[in-house]
């Protein structure tokens, strides 16, 4: 398996792990009765820092193992696959943002009936956006894996 494919599998694993880590963390805070806007934000920072550290470790380990390929950079096929996946990611992210904008316009109707009643509506929308972005990233990265596997 090429360096490029390995990093994509790694990123996919890290992103799925982060989604699970975020959802279980928020769920655990809610179950223990500790969920508030402050705990939610501090947990979010924790998730972001974990994401950055995991990505750096993964990239460094893979670059160390496959240093020759890592120095080569992207060729034309890599760029094409990157573009196809980015296009998909763009559509998904746009759809998620539009859904959240729609939700914001209906805020008076849905207020108090959102997933996390412990925090404000704004934080609930932020919660949906985070989940949406992570799912969008997972689908985008999975599409890259698909394009690489299909052509090899």
């Amino acid at each position: 398996m090429s360096y490029k494919e390995l990093t994509i599998w790694g990123t996919l694993g890290v992103t799925i792990g982060l989604l699970i880590y975020y959802l279980t963390g928020i769920n655990s805070l809610q179950t223990n009765g500790n969920l508030s806007q402050d705990t939610m934000v501090s947990y979010l920072y924790k998730v972001v820092i974990t994401a950055v550290i995991l990505e750096i470790i993964m990239q460094s380990v893979l670059a160390g193992i496959k240093h020759k390929e890592a120095d080569l950079g992207d060729d034309e096929r890599d760029k094409l696959i990157e573009l196809k996946s980015a296009k998909l990611g763009h559509w998904l992210t746009s759809a998620i943002i539009l859904m959240c904008v729609f939700l914001a316009t209906q805020i008076e109707r849905v207020s108090g009936r959102m997933l996390l009643p412990e925090v404000s509506d704004l934080y609930n929308i932020m919660h949906y956006l985070i989940i949406g972005f992570l799912i969008s990233e997972i689908i985008t990265t999975a599409s890259k894996v698909y394009f690489y596997r299909r052509d090899s």
Binding site: S2, E5, D75, E76, R77, Y148, R150, D151
Partner: peptide
């Protein structure tokens, strides 16, 4: 290019 690109070209998939 990468070896994987040559593989894909040879197979007519790219």
């Amino acid at each position: 290019v990468s070896r994987q690109t040559i593989v894909a070209i040879e197979k007519g998939k790219y």
